[in-house]
């Protein structure tokens, strides 16, 4: 089955799968040499790593990126110009209030569908799309229900699997985190595969992640599809669920991110927030002090660079200090 790689939660996995293609949620393993060089010049290490991954070859026929940050926009151009990998740049409006913006996103999904067809995809009929949507919806609901029985890393990795083909995403075996860990939220942008280590380090230091609000986590999972909308127009239901409901820093204005966060932090009795960002990611970085003023909870700033794999003590020390503070 032809694989389509993608690196943004605003690309609906259901849309890829419904075209008979294998979705591949791109998680570059780690920031490589190119990313380090890029970071030194002011480029987000994650975007640099996506370029590195595309240059070295990904196991997919094409790559889909989105315009939710300028780093990925430029990354897309760089990958396209190298000719190594066909790339599709999906326009995701930053504004969300207007019917025009919603229509633009829907039109972009249609354009993406035509791109899939060029890469071997078959346009789904409404019933097929609805079936795939409901299957993913059930899988995500099951994952969210099981969240308390999973370690943070398990949750993050399973969430990543559920952004791929469902057939190969077996449910995780429960591996409950220590019940006495301090309940924490992790908020921020995307993670490299190597960065998932930080969930373990955080847990070992005494934390318990009850809300994974990183780009690959719960924050960006579309909530239950409206069955009536699915029946009437599944593609519109899909577009609405993704475009209207995912709170993110890039939205203008981005008040919905704080509204969502406020609800979830209270519901889960979170005691501290780990704010995870890449250096040179302006969109998230700019939210740090605002978050600190907005919330009464302590916030740990965890800035990640291209060289962090080589400096695990830095992260560990911060976690320990943060948890000592919360103890």
């Amino acid at each position: 089955m032809t694989a389509i790689a993608y690196a943004s939660p605003f690309v609906p996995v259901e849309w890829i799968a419904a075209h008979g293609l294998r979705p591949l949620w791109l998680r570059p393993p780690a920031a490589g040499g190119g990313a380090e060089f890029a970071a030194a010049r002011g480029v987000c290490p994650y975007a640099g790593a996506v370029v590195d991954a595309a240059e070295t070859g990904i196991d997919a026929s094409a790559l889909v990126l989105t315009t939710i940050c300028d780093q990925m926009r430029f990354a897309s151009a760089l990958i396209e110009s190298s000719g190594r990998c066909p790339v599709f740049l999906l326009n995701v409006p930053s504004t969300w209030q207007t019917g025009e913006a919603r229509s633009l996103y829907l039109a972009e999904l249609c354009r993406l569908g035509r791109f899939f067809e060029k890469h071997g995809g078959k346009p789904p009929n409404g019933a097929e799309l609805a079936r795939v949507m409901l299957a993913y919806d059930r899988a995500r609901s099951a994952l969210l229900s099981a969240q308390s029985t999973l370690s943070a890393r398990q949750f993050a990795e399973t969430a990543a699997k559920y952004r791929g083909p469902l057939e190969t995403a077996s449910p995780p075996k429960p591996d409950a985190p220590p019940a006495d860990g301090i309940p924490l939220a992790v908020l921020g942008g995307p993670l490299l595969e190597a960065d998932y280590e930080f969930f373990d380090v955080l847990q070992r230091a005494g934390g318990r992640v009850v809300l994974d609000a990183t780009e690959g986590g719960e924050r960006t999972m579309p909530r239950g599809f409206d069955p009536r909308k699915i029946d009437a127009d599944p593609l519109r239901a899909l577009a609405d669920a993704y475009f209207n409901a995912i709170p993110d820093a890039f939205r203008r204005p981005n008040a919905a991110l704080y509204e969502w966060l406020g609800r979830e932090l209270a519901a889960r009795h979170v005691r501290g927030i780990v704010f995870r960002r890449y250096v040179w990611c302006d969109l998230w970085h700019a939210e740090l002090q605002r978050l600190k003023r907005w919330t009464a909870l302590p916030v740990l700033d965890l800035d990640a660079g291209a060289d962090d794999v080589a400096a695990p003590n830095r992260m560990q020390g911060r976690f320990e200090a943060f948890l000592e503070m919360l103890a």
Binding site: V279, V299, D301, R314, R318, A321, E324, M325
Partner: peptide, 11 residues
């Protein structure tokens, strides 16, 4: 005297 907030530059 307990810590309410902290930030580090170790980069």
């Amino acid at each position: 005297g307990s810590v309410a907030d902290f930030a580090m530059n170790d980069r």
